[in-house]
């Protein structure tokens, strides 16, 4: 058990003006594990994910990937680090000016300078992996349904065979059946790659399905972390309230009550 965690956050803090979003996040994910971070809207989930990805710079604290500190990276190193990452965005964030297959192949062609024909073959293979036909590859993102866009986003995230994949609300806005399809695809794709994953969601069904470990974030801090099958015995009022979806409890929403 001497192996160090693949991703480690220590006392990460981030504020926007007077608003403290992250108040000292401590989190560790072991290699090959799937961590799901649950929490309500506005608790800092997305900001935390963007800090790990390097899209936002934390005010203080350290983030280490595979034992290397992210802040210390210089020159071309951030780009190289990015190559080990894959990310599925909440709204899929597909590039609407290029066809679906080019979206999937984008990181290979632009980021890694792969030949277009070779990248195209990989793109179609990855599309097949998420259950999309070759015809879909020729369409533009705007012509696809929400569920299909999510699957293309997933294909794009795994196209470069990353060792770490991030999922930002992978099932939000989908019907329950499509949500389950996406969950299955995530589990199978991740298993195939052996990747470490960090997901954020407020969909408990999704969390139970894809997580090895679950952490709950509240007011910019991790208030509970444990194996996914122990979440029902967490003995934490906040966690209980969240997983059962109750309006009454220690977590109070800013809602005016009549």
């Amino acid at each position: 058990m001497a192996e160090q965690p693949h991703i480690e956050l220590e006392d990460v803090r981030k504020s926007f003006g007077p608003k403290h979003v992250l108040n000292g996040i401590n989190l560790a994910v072991d290699r090959g594990h799937s961590l799901v971070v649950i929490g309500g809207s506005g608790t800092g989930k997305s900001v935390m994910l963007k800090c790990i990805l390097g899209l936002l710079e934390p005010d203080s604290g350290s983030i280490t990937i595979g034992g290397k500190s992210e802040v210390a990276l210089k020159g071309a190193e951030p780009d190289q680090l990015m190559r080990r990452f894959g990310m599925l965005f909440q709204g899929a964030a597909l590039f609407d000016s290029i066809p679906v297959w080019e979206n999937v192949a984008f990181g290979l062609i632009q980021g890694q300078k792969m030949e277009r024909t070779e990248a195209r073959d990989i793109a179609f293979a990855k599309l097949g992996q998420v259950g999309l036909t070759a015809e879909v590859g020729e369409l533009y993102p705007a012509e696809l349904s929400g569920g299909m866009q999510k699957r293309v986003g997933l294909a794009r995230a795994i196209a470069a065979d990353p060792e770490i994949i991030f999922f930002d609300e992978p099932t939000t806005g989908l019907d329950p059946i499509m949500a389950d399809v996406i969950n299955d695809l995530i589990v199978s794709c991740v298993k195939q790659l052996g990747a470490t994953t960090v997901s954020i969601t407020h969909d408990m069904a999704s969390a139970r399905k894809i997580a090895d470990d679950i952490a709950m974030i509240y007011k910019g801090e991790i208030i509970w972390q444990g194996a996914a099958d122990t979440i029902d015995e967490s003995d934490n009022d906040h966690v209980d309230q969240f997983i059962h979806g109750r309006a009454d409890g220690p977590i109070q929403m800013d809602v005016l009550r009549p």
Binding site: L55, M82, M87, F95, F106, Q112, R156
Partner: peptide, 16 residues
Amino acid sequence: MRVTEQIDALTTLSTN
């Protein structure tokens, strides 16, 4: 592209 996170997506695909 910014509000639909496409610019963030570029970064994650190792494209500045």
